[in-house]
Design a protein around this nucleic acid. Sequence first.
DNA 1: CGTAACTTTCGGAGATTCCTGAAAGTTCAG
DNA 2: CTGAACTTTCAGGAATCTCCGAAAGTTACG
Lengths: 144, 144
Amino acid sequence: MTVRAWQRQFLTSVSALSVEVGMPPSILRVFAWMIVCEPVEQSAEQLRDALALSAGSVSAATTMLVRAGMVERARRPGERRLYYRVRDDAWEQVLRQRIEATSHLRSIADTVLARAPGDQHRLRDMRSFYASMEKVLRAGVRKP
Amino acid sequence: MTVRAWQRQFLTSVSALSVEVGMPPSILRVFAWMIVCEPVEQSAEQLRDALALSAGSVSAATTMLVRAGMVERARRPGERRLYYRVRDDAWEQVLRQRIEATSHLRSIADTVLARAPGDQHRLRDMRSFYASMEKVLRAGVRKP
DNA sequence: CGTAACTTTCGGAGATTCCTGAAAGTTCAG
DNA sequence: CTGAACTTTCAGGAATCTCCGAAAGTTACG
């Protein structure tokens, strides 16, 4: 399996974001590869070869991506190998997680506001930011 | 300057997010403190005392927060000290940066799509996710 | 200017993270 | 049930990150 130039470019562009996304490069690389690989389904060994990762890293990455709902496993009858592919609703999962994270921030602000005396102008700003963000994102779920 | 229980709770809740936000705990703690501190304006020394940080860490944190547009410096005439306070438009800056990041992801997808042959169903999904995200966020800027 | 008050820079220690490679665990064909 | 193929777990090491503290740099008053 040879990695083409445009695929390599995609891999590096995406894994460069590992720090801002807060994910290990190897996991980002695996997911990026699964977006551009051919064929769509890849075995752990294919991932290992294409990305020059150890078997352990591939296992950790696939486990994590499956748990996050971005990737799904597929077994083929009469084969020991597992295959992985991007889920159709992968991006909905991403959105869901963002909503969750936003909601969490808002609830932190809520909780502390309930305990804090006085004006708390700055805290209220924070809460209304995340509240409106949350609303906007949830509205984005229902396809317009 | 004594840190109250509700303030401490806020500090820990926020700094617990350092890994998912992708920011050092100390910077997050400084920003969190600036949201709940009294008085609103704090000198570097006050930050140092309240958060038990070294002068160097406080300096790094304030520099970073000022550069990110979340915090502003204030000088007082006839005083050597610098004071810091949360900017009124701090959260607009956060939103702006999110839009930027989203737009960047979309443009990565765009660029690679232009170079990739064939169907690229998965890449197009990614692009349209970030494109619609971008649109939604930009709409969120104009206050409803 | 000189000095005192305050802030920033910078080298390095300590902690954490990420990845590898080997060993153990699973799964399926025979 | 046995053995081979494949996957997961885990300890360890390298690289990175984060923070501290001392020294250098700034700023404002006398």
